[in-house]
Amino acid sequence: MKQVAKDIIHSIYSTNPLAMFAPQPAGVSFEAQHKGEKIIILLRAHIITLIPAILEIAFLALLPFLAATLNFVGVNPFSALGASQIFWVLLVWYIFVFGFTFYKFIFWYFNVYLLTNERIIDFDFKGITHKETAYANLNQVQDVTPKVVGFFHTYFNFGDVFIQTAAARNEFDFHAVEKPDMVAKEILEQVRHEESEKPGEVS
């Protein structure tokens, strides 16, 4: 079983730019990457976590149609506007819906967790004005705890991986990532590998 887990991570080179679990992702690098440092896994939140956002977007996209149905019960919210004005209102509305969708996508896409052969890195994109990047060397990792709680989490095999470290930020939370057990196992394996290296060695 351990061998299978190892094979998935070390034998696949993910080329999918939208992958939520990307072993050895091709075409991805990061700022401050050391020479010889390679990305072992790139993780994003599971696609299931986007369902509330998708429902919100669907609701916003359908809202003008819902407003139009009010006409049947005698309420016409657009009665004072001409046809061209209704066109502009709808255009502005759908620009907003596009912007909201784009924002939600960017939010998901850039919230990335990386495991390299040297470090763990957490790129946090918490809002339009809030971004944060945290690094911890593998030799600072003290404890790794995968946690899968809930029906959907168990069914789709995703959950949180809590990493206790001796770095400036003492806890990393890989939130809602796919295959948390495999991720935790791989982090521990890389920590063991790092501890067996000479100080300063990158391999």
């Binding site: 730019p17 990061f30 700022e31 502005v92 907003f96 912007g99 924002y103 896409y109 790129f123 339009i128």
Partner: peptide, 28 residues
């Protein structure tokens, strides 16, 4: 007013994408 606000929002979004593209270059 909504469009002025939205234009600022889209500018901020663009700046965030530029920033994150430097931090984490990907093919997308």
């Amino acid at each position: 007013l909504f469009l002025i606000f939205y234009a600022f929002f889209s500018l901020m979004l663009h700046r965030q994408i530029q920033f994150m593209s430097r931090k984490l270059p990907t093919v997308l």
